[in-house]
Amino acid sequence: MNSKRETGRGSRTLFSGLKYLCILCTVVSVAALVAVVFYILKNGIGKLSWQLLFGEYTGSAVSIFPAFIGTLRLIVIAVLIAVPVGIFSAVYLVEYMNNKGKLVKVIRIAAETLAGIPSIVYGLFGYLIFVRTFQWGYSLLGGGITLAIMILPVIIRSTEESLLAVPDGFREGSLALGAGKVRTIFRIVLPSAASGIVTAVILAVGRIISESAVLILTLGMVVNLIPSSVLSPGTSLALDIYYFASHGYPDEAAATSVVLLLMVILLNLLATGLGKLIKRRQGE
């Protein structure tokens, strides 16, 4: 047969072999994910209790309540800083620099490089600046600012993408009605890009929640005290996992992981849900 002569027996075997390799790899990937989740649930779910979640941290019973407070404050600090700075930077690059020119290219490369730096390097930076130079010691504020710097490139990049996806017809339409550039950007372009930006911000919050390397060097890992101010040292959920695992509470570490896992899943659902909701309200 014609096809047989063209492809040949050897390459056909190779092709079907590749197919099975793909299937095998998929099974391995899924199995690895399931194993992680299963292991965490098996060890952690038994330890999930009111005491662990919201109780007071005492010598006999541990609690992740201080970590809840710490994580929440870190999110607030980092988002308050990174979201406006990131969005305004992206607006400048896309709407004012028209997304071209040498400067934009340099800034883009810088942002992409920053996004690729291992987070422990950010942590070291935060440690040297806030803990040492500023003499704040370990603090939520120092940790939060360092996290803000870490998620900044992510927010800039995704806001840029969202702005670039806004059709030029909207900009022209607005300008042609006599709205100035600033009004066009803030009344038309940014709202049109809102769903993408909101999704990006929520995913960035997910990164804040999951981050540990930065916080090891900036936050102090004080697991038993509720931080009294933003300049107090503290802990976060991810840090608690590290602390529990290395101080003889492996099951509590697993339970904390369950909580963290749930929060990240919820955030991802929220990100897609809110994005869709905004789009639907705009009628897309």
């Binding site: 017809g169 022209e172 339409g173 607005s174 042609a176 009605l177 709202p191 049109s192 897309e284």
Partner: peptide, 13 residues
């Protein structure tokens, strides 16, 4: 001096 474009461009609102 108002303008109407080739492609209808209502704002997403």
């Amino acid at each position: 001096v108002g303008m109407v474009f080739q492609k209808p461009n209502p704002f997403p609102m």
